[in-house]
């Protein structure tokens, strides 16, 4: 996939995953990559720059939770959507819908003509 399309799309997918509930990096990556069925062919690590960027933009808020002792007593960083993040997600959904409709319309017309 074109990296220019990927940048904005990954952020929207992260917001979409967190709209379902708070989550941490590994879980978010599994959800995004799993539900996209490997389409994006992303490295799991590449999600973290997007997560931190959304955090700096105040679209996400982070908090730490001590993980289970069975997992070595590590700290785990959870993310949650902020109100600003929710508004941004709504805006991105609408934008994506218009984009998809526009692209589909063009592709569909071109397909008819062709």
């Amino acid at each position: 996939m074109d990296s220019r399309l990927l940048s904005g799309t990954v952020e929207m997918l992260i917001l979409e995953v967190l709209a379902r509930g708070d989550s941490y990096g590994y879980q978010i990556a599994q959800t995004v990559l799993g539900e996209s069925a490997g389409y994006f062919q992303l490295k799991e690590g590449s999600l973290y720059p997007a997560l931190h960027r959304l955090q700096r933009q105040k679209l996400l808020k982070a908090y730490w939770i001590e993980a289970d002792t069975s997992e070595g007593g590590r700290r785990r960083k959870y993310y949650k959507l902020t109100p600003k993040g929710k508004a941004a997600l709504k805006s991105k959904r609408e934008e994506w819908a218009r984009f998809a409709a526009g692209v589909s319309g063009v592709l569909g017309q071109g397909h008819v003509v062709a």
């Binding site: 590994y26 799991e44 973290y48 997992e71 070595g72 700290r75």
Partner: peptide, 14 residues
């Protein structure tokens, strides 16, 4: 430390 902890958690899970 936060970066190390976050990425370590991910790698341990993986």
């Amino acid at each position: 430390r936060d970066i190390i902890d976050e990425l370590t958690d991910h790698l341990e899970c993986a």
